[in-house]
Design a protein around this nucleic acid. Structure first.
Lengths: 352, 352
DNA sequence: GTGAAAGCGCTAACAG
DNA sequence: CTGTTAGCGCTTTCAC
């Protein structure tokens, strides 16, 4: 066999990628057998398997994933569709998704939508055209029709942060409402007497839920009035602007809960510019738990979502769905956690 | 033809994706012709073209990108290999790359290497296995052998931030050395008398170049001593630690230039903790121009690279290389720019 | 200008 | 347990 081996090796040229046929020839078996040992399905005799593996090694054979995709319909790819990768929340998430996906043999396509419905649709179409095995969708404007279509086409989908009640697809989301209450409770405990909320865009489910939680937590108090609410847009600049407006109406607030961390960052910056001491004069708490909350001085107290775990979980669920080992559409609600840091500690009214 | 059309429509089922064959049948031409009109190559009669386009429309035909990839060897995908997408610098870059790529019909695979040589090699292999049309590589530990191999295999490659002199591949990078000098010059102009540099990991080309630039700019001064250099690791925490060590040795520095913005962020935080006023007591300047330099109070002066443009440019160059309209390997050196902000303004010695 | 036909490299029945 | 064979959907010579 040795001479034959070399002959084959010479024939294949060794330069241009070896194919399954080359392996079959060298191992003296059919390509079907080679396919079997590669994919570990079907029965293959131990001896034969060894021969094949040898040949594979010799030829440095790598299955062609494109051909495999064409023949099998599975591409081992997934789409990660999100508003903007340069937003720290989503980049942390993306990191988790990619880690998890790649460790399970999947490769991920990156798609930025800017939360623009047209771009979202576009990317969904593009990704379908690329025959991704599944889609991980983070955003909020995905419309029901699109979801239904995907379901009908049997394209596995996992959605992050979608509103509750819309259980037509698999959703992973945090307990936003409870988180907001946690935030308010914390501010109350450290002695705040007048708490404001800077809420996010109301098209965004998470923003709605956090606002709802806030309202539920404060409505019983006599100091509460709707003008303690101020709209923000989930950006740093938005947080700065909102704080400015808010303080004009209510110079005496002593606690601010922002709908996300980016706005908390902006709020903190604005407060510093206004020479208002945090937390001495105003306590500040955000929501999300992005790493940036730790870079400021003081660091920002926040309701932390386990962003990395959420990404990992969503990815694993998606893969399970792809591989057929997940049939239910149960939504996953993740618990959030209060992380106390400098922006709310040491409040003058703490020691009561 | 109408009846026939409908018959065909019914035959294809309309549900499962139409193929090029269906289009050919409906338009009464061969699949070769359909392929020609789709890809706009070869001569096709105007009439015929119209018929074909009609059929395509009717059947809502979409070329199967996988089959196309297998047959043509081009996948219209590219790999974006970078250390860590959750690093703001790279997420800004990734955003640019994806924007540019998708607008030119390419889809991008995301790969995080943590600057780990093994992961880098792994991903390069994976991406080759997926037959990406090209690779955009941001990192520093890519070894010559790998580059050579890619060149030999004719896989277009664009590298970001690689050291100069290694012009065996297409490189896009900033003028780090000049930038460092710019930083020092600025600190001198505002009156600093003792300037320290917190440099990044020396495996990283950019860190080396910036250190070099710094040394060149300060070596002529009598106050300069190598102990004004402190090693950092390009992270926020690294910046904090480095400042601590530095100030123990030289409590009297009045200017600090950090090798990147993340470390400047850390430095600023540490200085605040130490109750050292920025810029009154110490002026601080970073390098990169990431958006986060604007969220602190004071905002951080920095040597800004046009991150978005770098990403766009690199992507466009890669695509040109892929599509054969770029033959030279000329490296691109991008100019950086001094962006003066609060962390260096108002220095007490300015008004001289 | 257009069509026929031979693949691209692999999977998946279906025989044996 | 293994081989044969028919595709997956498209590109691409090479004739007509």
């Amino acid at each position: 066999m040795k001479i034959a081996d070399l002959a084959v090796l010479r024939e294949t040229g060794e330069c241009s990628m070896a194919t399954i046929r080359d392996v079959a020839k060298l191992a003296n078996v059919s390509i079907a057998t080679v396919s079997r040992v590669i994919n570990q399905n079907g029965y293959v005799n131990g001896e034969t398997k060894k021969k094949v593996n040898n040949a594979i090694e010799l030829l440095k054979y790598k299955p062609n994933s494109i051909a495999k995709g064409l023949a099998s319909g599975k591409t081992k790819t997934m789409a990660l569709i999100l508003p903007d990768i340069s937003n720290p929340f989503f980049s942390e998430l993306a990191r988790a998704v990619e880690d998890s996906a790649s460790s399970q043999g999947y490769t991920v396509f990156l798609c930025n939508t800017d939360s623009d419905t047209n771009k979202e649709k576009d990317y969904i179409r593009k990704m379908k055209d690329r025959f991704v095995d599944g889609i991980l969708f983070a955003g909020h404007t995905l419309q029901e029709p699109e979801i239904k279509t995907l379901e009908e086409e049997k394209i596995p989908l996992v959605v992050l942060d979608r509103a509750p009640g819309e259980d037509i697809c698999l959703v992973v989301r945090s307990n936003n409402r409870e988180g907001a209450k946690l935030a308010v409770r914390h501010l109350l405990e450290i002695g705040c007497n007048k708490i404001a909320h800077i809420y996010g865009p109301q098209e965004v489910a998470t923003a709605r839920e956090r606002l709802l939680g806030f309202e539920e937590a404060v409505k019983e108090f006599s100091w509460y009035t709707p003008s303690l609410l101020e709209q923000g847009d989930f950006t740093i600049k938005g947080g700065m602007d909102a704080v400015g407006l808010l303080l004009k109406r209510h110079p005496d607030v002593d606690g601010i809960f922002t709908g996300n961390d980016l706005m908390a960052l902006g709020a903190l910056k604005k407060l510093k510019q206004l020479k208002i001491k945090v937390p001495d004069q105003i306590s500040l708490i955000g929501f999300d738990g992005i790493e940036l909350t730790e870079i400021t001085e003081p660091e920002i107290t926040t309701i932390a979502q386990p962003i990395y775990q959420i990404g990992s979980l969503a990815t694993s669920l998606l893969i399970k769905k792809i591989e057929g080992s997940l049939l239910l559409h149960k939504s996953h609600e993740i618990d959030v956690e209060l992380v106390v840091r400098g922006s709310t500690k040491g409040n003058s009214k703490v020691i009561s």
